Simulated assay, not measured.
Amino acid sequence: MGFPRAYAEFTNPEDDTEVYRLDLTWLTSRWECIFGAGCPGIYADAPENGCCTLGAHFADADDEKRVKKAVKQLTPDLWEHYKEGKKRGWVELEDDDTVSPGEEPDRKTRVVDGACIFHNSKDFPGGYGCALHHLANKQGRHFHETKPDVCWQLPIRRQFREVERTDGTNYTEVSIGEYSRDGWGPGGHDLDWYCTANTEAHHGREPVYVNNKPELVALMGKKGYQLLKQYCEEFESRRGTLLRHPADPAD
């Protein structure tokens, strides 16, 4: 956190009331998810859980509805906690001690045996990791169609901000960047390990904007992604070592 970054901005080609703000330093970094390939997890006492330890908060009702549709398609051979989920449900409310006074608690996936209810253990025959991820693979779909928004987006972060110009007009700034430790709130500093800031997860063969194209297209549309790609390619051709992500390996 706190290192210099390069940004680019352009108007959303499909909505002129929005302006995309791209974190080029992050999008051209060599981060790649290493779950199941050396990821030590966010907590030292639960290394096999990756970042699935806390369960997933739903972004909104549509997010939960989409996941619900996917859950109906899960079978015992894909989901280790199938019986538990069917019997007692797979949604819970966040803990009361994390909710500010006057606010409603968020709905989230249940935590069972120390991790999200959809997390399969390493010895489960149906496959280690997210059951919803395995469902997408089995059906030939991308996992952004089956997993909660926060899960398939992480560690890409999309944020919205209303901006007033000096002439009194307004636009919505849509930032596309890195979900760094501070994105987790104050508790992010208590994580024992987190992938975006560590070199172990920055050895991808392709940069984030290429390797995570399906997620970026889902977040900003095909036309928006094409412009993002052009800005990233231009930045890569010019940057040298300047404004490189500090977790990236040296050339």
Rank of each mutant, 00 (worst) to 15 (best):
Y231H: 13
F35I: 07
A250F: 09
N12W: 02
F35S: 01
Y128R: 13
Y209I: 05
L242K: 14
P101M: 12
D167F: 11
D23T: 09
G183V: 09
P207I: 03
V112L: 08
L228T: 12
M1W: 03
A44M: 15
C51T: 05
D16M: 11
W193V: 01
M1S: 00
A59F: 15
D97F: 15
N170L: 13
Y209D: 11
R21A: 10
T109C: 10
S121I: 00
L216K: 00
D60R: 10
D97Y: 15
E92N: 00
R107Y: 12
D149P: 12
A247L: 09
E14F: 06
A136H: 05
E104V: 10
G41T: 09
E162P: 00
D60H: 07
E18A: 10
M1T: 06
V111K: 04
S180R: 01
F235Y: 12
K213E: 13
A115W: 06
V71G: 08
S100M: 14
P246A: 02
E206D: 09
G127A: 08
Q73I: 14
W31T: 04
A59G: 14
H133A: 12
F235H: 14
H203A: 08
R205A: 15
A250T: 08
G36Y: 12
S100C: 04
G36V: 09
H203W: 06
G85W: 07
V67W: 12
N198H: 08
P249N: 11
V91F: 06
G183N: 04
G126K: 10
E18M: 10
M220C: 06
V91L: 14
V112A: 03
H245A: 11
F160L: 13
H134Y: 11
L219M: 14
T25F: 00
W31I: 06
F124N: 00
